[in-house]
Simulated scan of single mutants.
Amino acid sequence: MGRGKMAGIISDLFGWDKHLEVDKDGALDLIGDDAIVIDVRNESKRKKVEPIFDETINVEFKEFETKIKDLLEKKEITKDDSYVVFCTTGAKGLKAVKILRKYGFEKSFNMKYGTNAWHANDDGCGT
Rank of each mutant, 00 (worst) to 15 (best):
L30F: 04
K62T: 14
A7D: 11
E63P: 00
L72I: 06
I36T: 14
E50P: 08
E21N: 06
V37M: 06
F61P: 02
N58M: 05
E73K: 15
K67N: 11
K24D: 09
I10M: 13
F53V: 05
D54I: 11
T66N: 13
D12C: 01
E73S: 15
D54W: 02
S11C: 07
N42L: 00
F61C: 01
D25Q: 14
I52K: 07
L28P: 05
K79I: 09
I38W: 00
R41S: 10
G8H: 08
K79A: 07
L71G: 09
T66E: 15
K18V: 03
D25H: 10
V59F: 03
D34H: 14
T78G: 12
K67A: 03
G8P: 04
K74C: 06
D23T: 12
K48I: 13
I68R: 00
F86E: 05
K79F: 04
D39Y: 04
F64S: 07
E50T: 10
G32Q: 10
F61G: 07
F14N: 11
H19I: 07
F86H: 15
R41K: 11
L30E: 11
E60M: 06
V84G: 05
K45W: 10
S11A: 15
I52C: 01
I68Y: 01
D17Q: 13
K48S: 12
L13I: 15
R46M: 11
G8A: 11
S44L: 13
E21G: 08
A27H: 09
L71T: 09
E43H: 10
H19D: 15
L72V: 07
I9T: 07
G26K: 00
D39F: 03
K74R: 13
K47F: 07
G8L: 08
D54V: 02
L72Q: 03
T56L: 00
F86M: 05
E55S: 15
F61N: 09
I10F: 13
V37H: 06
L30W: 09
I36N: 03
D23H: 12
K74M: 02
F86V: 02
V85S: 06
D54S: 14
F64H: 07
E55M: 04
K74E: 14
D29G: 06
K74P: 08
L71S: 07
T66C: 04
V59N: 02
K69V: 00
I9M: 12
